[in-house]
């Protein structure tokens, strides 16, 4: 695809099969405490898991 570059990302649909362990950091325990989102949390079990 010469006009489209697809950036490597985690496949969210596939993560429905392997995710949900809940071990990742709670959003508000990090830096913000007032305006958090979830996108900047890392997956605790990422290694060895399907993207």
């Amino acid at each position: 695809m010469k006009r489209i570059q697809t950036i490597a990302t985690r496949n969210l649909k596939q993560s429905a099969q392997t995710g949900g362990c809940g071990e990742c950091q709670t959003s508000c325990q990090s830096a913000c405490k007032t305006s958090c989102g979830v996108a900047n949390q890392q997956c605790e079990k990422y290694i060895g898991q399907n993207k």
């Binding site: 950036i7 490597a8 990302t9 985690r10 969210l12 649909k13 993560s15 429905a16 392997t18 995710g19 949900g20 809940g22 990742c24 709670t26 959003s27 508000c28 325990q29 990090s30 830096a31 913000c32 958090c36 989102g37 979830v38 996108a39 900047n40 949390q41 890392q42 997956c43 990422y46 993207k51």
Partner: peptide, 27 residues
């Protein structure tokens, strides 16, 4: 910068993304 720290390949699974911040439940 905290809000620009998005790991596109190793970010949260769909369950994390749909279940909210966890206040009143897990937090």
């Amino acid at each position: 910068f905290y809000h620009y720290m998005i790991d596109l390949e190793a970010g949260p699974c769909i369950y994390k993304r749909i279940s909210g911040c966890g206040s009143g439940t897990e937090y």
